[in-house]
């Protein structure tokens, strides 16, 4: 597979480490979250047949975490974004 890194251009997937479902961006605040919220965050993942937003880490490269929107049936990569930008867009800050 080839991942089109937003900063570095097309890179071979072998340079990356995959973490999985990008829902991991949405970590609840441990001081206010219920145990159930935190449990769901830590353990529950979607595993769709089709488009899936995934976290990939360019470990053998520039150490960017990326959100890769990938079709799990065809391996088509539809979109690649810096995870930091996605996190900010989705309301994460400090």
């Amino acid at each position: 597979m080839i991942i089109n890194h937003p900063l570095l251009g097309p890179r071979d997937a072998a340079e990356f480490t995959v973490l999985g479902d990008a829902s991991l961006l949405h970590r609840p605040d441990g001081m206010t979250a219920t145990m159930d919220d935190m449990h769901d965050y830590a353990y529950l993942r979607d595993n769709p047949a089709g488009l899936h937003r995934e976290l990939w880490y360019h470990e053998q490269g520039d150490r960017s975490w990326l959100v890769v929107t990938r079709n799990t049936l065809t391996h088509d990569v539809e979109n690649v974004e810096l995870a930091r930008d996605v996190a900010r867009t989705e309301g994460r800050s400090k």
């Binding site: 480490t17 973490l19 991991l24 961006l25 970590r27 976290l55 880490y57 470990e59 150490r63 960017s64 975490w65 810096l82 995870a83 930091r84 996190a87 900010r88 994460r92 800050s93 400090k94």
Partner: peptide, 19 residues
């Protein structure tokens, strides 16, 4: 060493991007 660094980068970029 590698895993800790990876997880810290995750926390820095994905969880608290403005720190």
């Amino acid at each position: 060493a590698v895993t800790v660094f990876r997880n810290m980068e995750f926390a820095r970029q994905c969880l608290w991007p403005d720190l």
